[in-house]
Design a protein around this nucleic acid. Structure first.
Length: 612
DNA sequence: CTTAGGG
DNA sequence: CCCTAAG
């Protein structure tokens, strides 16, 4: 059993994705949970070669699939969700639930979708079932609330149409976020709340789309208005985007594989954005995703208009490198694993060309290195967090161009003694690298980094972990004096993480942190169960502290409390609830979690009742 | 190893 | 986040 999603790339930026089904039994055997379909993502590195995905990558994709699956439920849940916030959105919310059958799609892709769905089912059997149970037990609310929403959409023009909330204050949101109404400053706040880091990008469109992805955990940025219901985030849809959304719910699963490779393909394809877009189109699925011409056009326009400021570049590179370092790192690792050690010198030429082609985003300077005249990014990019573990692999990757750098770095390491581990290596680089060193180090990365900047603008084609944290096991830790290790950086909890946590608690119950970690945080490898527990404790504190008073003053005076009120509310609900039924015994809760029904199943029901 | 709680 | 005690 198994399925291979294969991506072939060439230097023309064209590629095709083929799905090969080896076996159809996936759907029928629940036992496969323990032995899920193996997706072998064959990725294309900067070299243009095929690279087998690493285990990490496979796992990551599973995580993505899980996300997508969950998102499916988001939308399927829309009716009910809207019902819970009827005070907010009824006048304009409009879930588009019709099936996406009519969409043209190749048989192969459809088959892929089915397979992927199967995979999704298997990946999150518990979540899926419990959610389904919810639907089953609450048909009334869905029906009732859907009715008024079926009317035609007022204001065909998109996102701002659905905005009711006159208050663009993210922290005071009563459940709705309309990015279109936010000022740049407010967008920055939302961004920070969403990703846990500040941004200085002043491009509204970029911010909106970025946040949109962050909030939806997907690459769907077709709408910029969101409704937070409980911990779930529901996109407000409009007619134009209906198709896309349907894809996102049902078929995006199949697109994920494509999108996941997108970054690599992009880094590989030495083409400008127009070509990129058109190159992406051949895939039927992708093309469907782009049924919304406005979106594509919109983004193209945005890309062209903006003159890349230094700030922009810096921000983008930091953000994106952070977000893609995991992928890139593994990419290189896999490259190493497969035994491709020699990077054709051609790549350097390509690199330079790439740089010049993308002059809008990457300022380069000519640098002579080992006899090569190559362009390297001028921006001084120091990887502040998550240093690449496999610098050596990276160096091997560019033997000719960076060989000197390699020895340079190696020497530095030697000077610092052999106790240096891989992680310390980067500290060396960070701490004492000269500008030249750093620059050279990033020569190897520049390929990816440029693609990253590209990604930032072609995000709609790729799955992007909005928080930029998913399955990044590359946590920087420093050995502590007492022998333990300590995380080097605070990793601020992102909104999506918090939502996942709340979701997990609601499903499995507070206290079952390891379960939650395994099931809900499978893709956040750096969050330990203790972290979850701590965060939950903080959330509790926050929710009980803030919610009751809710003074007209500014609870948001603390920038450190970016948790949207709905989530806090829900936290409180769960807390109260679980205080009453603290310990459903282990087997029972396990059953309830996976089998549906049971005492634990009342979790959601209770919450619903209380919330309504 | 997992949780809970204090720091 | 870290640390530790307790199961």
């Amino acid at each position: 059993m198994g399925k291979v999603v294969e991506v072939e790339g060439n230097c023309d930026g064209k590629f095709k994705v083929t799905g090969l089904e080896k076996n159809n039994s996936v759907l029928y055997s629940p036992r496969h949970v323990a032995d899920p379909v193996v997706y072998k993502l064959v990725r294309v590195d900067g070299n243009g070669r095929l690279v087998p995905a690493t285990d990490d990558e496979l796992m990551e994709v599973e995580g993505l699939l899980e996300n997508e699956k969950r998102e499916t439920h988001f939308v399927a849940d829309t009716g009910q969700a809207l019902g819970c916030i009827s005070n907010e959105v009824l006048s304009s919310g409009m879930p588009q639930l019709e099936s996406s059958e009519g969409l043209s799609q190749s048989e192969k892709t459809k088959a892929d979708t089915e397979k992927l769905s199967a995979q999704c089912e298997e990946t999150v059997p518990c979540g899926a079932q419990s959610l389904s149970d919810d639907h089953a037990t609450q048909p009334g609310s869905v029906g009732e609330c859907l009715k008024p929403l079926d009317g035609p959409m007022q204001g065909g023009s998109s996102t701002s149409a659905g905005c009711i909330s006159s208050k663009p204050d993210f922290y005071k949101l009563e459940g709705e976020i309309c990015l279109d109404n936010l000022s740049i400053k407010e967008l920055h706040e939302v961004f920070k709340a969403t990703f846990g880091r500040a941004t200085t990008v002043k491009d509204k469109l970029w911010l909106k789309r970025r946040i949109a992805m962050g909030l939806t955990n997907s690459c769907d940025v077709s709408t910029t208005t969101f409704v937070i219901n409980d911990y779930k985030l529901v996109k407000k849809e409009n007619k134009d985007n209906a198709n896309y959304v349907n894809l996102a719910t049902g078929k995006e699963c199949s697109a994920v594989a494509v999108e996941y490779n997108g970054d690599v393909l992009n880094s590989l394809s030495q083409i400008d954005e127009h070509q990129t877009v058109s190159a992406m189109r051949p895939g039927s699925d992708v093309e469907n995703n782009f049924a919304n011409e406005d979106l594509a056009a919109d983004q193209r326009a945005a890309k062209r208009v903006r003159k890349p400021t230094k700030r922009y570049i810096e921000e983008l590179s930091e953000a994106e490198s952070k977000e893609y370092s995991g992928n890139s790192g593994r990419l290189l690792a896999s490259t190493k694993n497969i035994g491709i050690r020699s990077m054709p010198s051609k790549s350097h030429a390509r690199l330079a060309r790439n740089a010049s082609l993308e002059g809008r985003t990457v300022i380069t300077r000519l640098d002579s290195l080992g006899g090569f005249g190559i362009q390297v990014p001028c921006v001084y990019r120091v990887r502040r967090s998550r240093p690449r573990k496999n610098v050596m692999a990276l160096l091997k990757f560019h033997p000719s161009g960076t060989g000197m750098t390699a020895t340079f770095i190696k020497r530095g390491l030697d000077v610092h003694g052999s106790r240096m581990g891989n992680e310390s290596m980067n500290e060396v680089l960070e701490a004492k690298s000269t500008p030249e060193q750093t620059t050279h180090q990033f020569v190897a990365e520049s390929n990816k980094e440029k693609s990253s900047t590209d990604l930032g603008q072609n995000m709609e084609l790729k799955y992007v972990d909005p928080a930029g944290d998913t399955s990044d096991d590359n946590v920087v830790t420093v050995p502590t004096a007492k022998g333990g290790t300590r995380r080097k950086h605070h990793r601020a909890w992102t909104l999506s993480e918090v939502m996942k946590l709340v979701e997990g608690v609601s499903k499995y119950g507070a206290g079952r942190w390891s379960e939650i970690k395994r099931l809900a945080f499978a893709s956040y490898s750096y969050r330990t169960s203790v972290d979850l527990k701590d965060k939950w404790r903080n959330l509790l504190k926050a929710s009980f502290a803030q919610t009751p008073m809710d003074k007209g003053a500014n609870p948001r005076k603390h920038p450190l409390m970016p948790i949207p009120a709905p989530i806090l509310l829900r936290v409180r609900e769960l807390a109260e609830m679980q205080a009453q039924a603290p310990s459903p015994n282990l087997s029972a809760s396990k059953l309830s979690a996976c089998g549906g029904g049971g005492s634990g199943g009342s979790v959601n029901e209770t919450k619903q009742g209380g919330y309504l």
